[in-house]
């Protein structure tokens, strides 16, 4: 068990190092990155001074070393627009994004798990078919359009929920629903098909034949086996949710990191974009690490490894 945790930690560190290196090269994709960090009308002397101060005139292996070293110390440069450390700006916005994504994830799981359990046991009947059509729709909604349509119906026409901002749970309802639609559909589909597969397996037939009550067969023998691949996908959805939050935040004026990043792009405030991408990567890698370790709880075979 300890070895497994250690190797997963090592892997996570490798992934984060890889992402940092990728961000480093991404910034330099268009050649000299000085222009990305300064306003377009900056004077040539300022450009040169900045280039020298940032070390952009050094050979790139030196730059990469400096970049990673500074990153290890939490230094990702100054935001041009706000004149503050970019990482601090991003971290200030992190709680709002995490709140939105976490609520959306909980909503997805709360809806998808019961629906999948009932649908799998009633395969081909009306409930199952309706569920499949609903998941098809959930999978096909452009999230930003769904968000605007929800605003139209619930804020403009019915006037029951606020269209933007972050004040209390009421302002969370519409963003969470529009963000959760896709992952709800994906989790439902997957858990349903996994459950159908497990329901047909020999050990379930045996459990039924032994005369175990139906509920306990479903809980102990079917759901537990079907949960393992589903947990992987739930973990993968976290990345999708955080990514999707970028656009959801933009539409609902939700003060999270995504909104900050989009503003940063239009302000050419690249230090913030950089800090944002790396923060995102850290959160997602941490969640996937957690998911990996959750397997051990679900699957006793892994505890011995």
């Amino acid at each position: 068990m300890f070895g497994r945790v250690f190797s997963r930690l090592l892997h996570a560190a490798a992934v984060l190092l890889g992402v940092s290196v990728a961000v480093f090269f991404l910034v330099r994709l268009g050649g000299d990155p000085t222009g990305l960090f300064l306003p377009p009308d900056a004077a040539p002397a300022d450009l040169a001074a900045f280039r020298h101060a940032m070390g952009f005139d050094q050979p790139w292996p030196v730059q990469l070393g400096q970049f990673l070293w500074a990153g290890l110390h939490g230094d990702f440069g100054q935001s041009l627009r706000y004149g503050q450390p970019a990482m601090r700006l991003v971290l200030e916005r992190l709680p709002a994004t995490v709140e939105l994504s976490a609520v959306a994830l909980v909503l997805s799981v709360l809806v998808s798990v019961p629906v999948a359990i009932v649908a799998a046991q009633n395969r081909g009947r009306a409930f199952d078919r309706a569920g499949l059509l609903a998941t098809l729709a959930g999978q096909s909604f452009p999230a930003f359009w769904l968000a605007i349509m929800l605003i139209l119906v619930f804020s403009e026409w019915l006037g029951v929920l606020p269209p933007s901002g972050r004040q209390g749970w009421r302002s969370l309802v519409l963003p969470a629903i529009s963000l959760a639609a896709y992952s709800t559909a994906i989790i439902t589909r997957l858990l349903r098909s996994n459950m159908i597969e497990v329901l047909q397996s020999n050990h379930v037939r045996t459990a039924h034949a032994k005369g175990l009550p139906h509920g306990s067969v479903i809980w102990r023998h079917v759901l537990r086996n079907a949960a393992i691949p589903t947990v992987t996908v739930i973990g993968l959805q976290v990345g999708g949710l955080l990514g999707g939050a970028v656009i959801t935040e933009q539409i609902f004026a939700w003060p999270g990191m995504g909104q900050l990043a989009i503003q940063a792009i239009s302000n050419r405030d690249f230090a913030v974009v950089q800090a944002f991408v790396l923060t995102m990567a850290v959160v997602i890698v941490a969640v996937n690490l957690l998911v990996d370790l959750t397997y051990a709880l679900l699957d006793p075979r892994l505890r011995r490894m």
């Binding site: 890889g18 990728a22 792009i265 944002f276």
Partner: peptide
């Protein structure tokens, strides 16, 4: 592949478009 999973597609696309 894991690196790509760690950076949601929309985030990556934002960064690339911001540069290019």
């Amino acid at each position: 592949g894991d690196m790509q999973l760690a950076v949601p597609f929309l985030v990556l696309a934002l960064a690339v478009v911001a540069v290019l």
